[in-house]
Design a protein around this nucleic acid. Sequence first.
DNA 1: CGGTATCCCATTTGATACTG
DNA 2: CAGTATCAAATGGGATACCG
Lengths: 158, 158
Amino acid sequence: MKKVSHSSDACSLAKSMEILGEWWTLPILQEALLGTKKFNDFYNNLGIAKNILSVRLNKLIEEGLMEKKAINPNSKRSYYLLTQKGLSTATIIIALIQWCDKWILSPGEIPMILKDRLTNKKIPNLKIQNESGDEINIWDIITTPGPGATKSIDYRFK
Amino acid sequence: MKKVSHSSDACSLAKSMEILGEWWTLPILQEALLGTKKFNDFYNNLGIAKNILSVRLNKLIEEGLMEKKAINPNSKRSYYLLTQKGLSTATIIIALIQWCDKWILSPGEIPMILKDRLTNKKIPNLKIQNESGDEINIWDIITTPGPGATKSIDYRFK
DNA sequence: CGGTATCCCATTTGATACTG
DNA sequence: CAGTATCAAATGGGATACCG
């Protein structure tokens, strides 16, 4: 059976997952964020099968997260570059990295540290904040139907 | 072939995905964050097959993201509750929701709005900040090997 | 190097039936 | 309600071969 799309009134998560949730998609994006641009570099660094890589890259292009640009006008070789839309998945990727480093790995197992180039200090964990920059407790998050809601249920984070 | 685990020196993302990246896992967690506790409520709200739901729930318990608690001592019925570890995936889920709402949906299509209960205002998008709370530009993120690095390469966000 | 095309099979998933 | 068991279908992934 087809891996059917997740359905729920709260479908933003589902929609994101349809684009980002396939195997290899997020690792490819991370690799791109780390500076990889060429097909073979993705291939070698990730250890992904070429055909899968090809499909994923094309889907990312199709969805507007990457674009393919010729290295120079008379070459067939090209770079796969992140668009703004692709770049902005960094928050998602960092959230996943930080969650792993906090909850899965012991401090000694952490493979990669993210730092701010300007201060040379570790980037702190993402926080859910209000408009004033104060941290919001998860239980203080409430949800209301948006204009595209199909049902008018009020959800509440737990 | 088996869906092989993603490999890369930067493996935190991969490890998170091994736990959270399967189909239905994140929607289940979102549903739990929205207050769902009972098997049948997950089943009905998500439209997931029962056997899959059962497997996912048990994996989440095994991984320490949820726990199963009897509703009362002499009942066989029980609640599936998020642990702290499970709760803290909220950041990931919110990152995914916000990315969709910003890059996929038009403003009129947004199905659910997250608000701060205390101020009743919309929760702003997650930001990558330094220790002082200043926003960091993606290009100013650098990466250095952590204690668990297998190779000693310095990566840099693009 | 930078891919595309085929093949093959394990895994996964949804449907259905069944149980306490 | 709260699951478990079984099953068939198909998708998805890796390997391999091939091409400009």
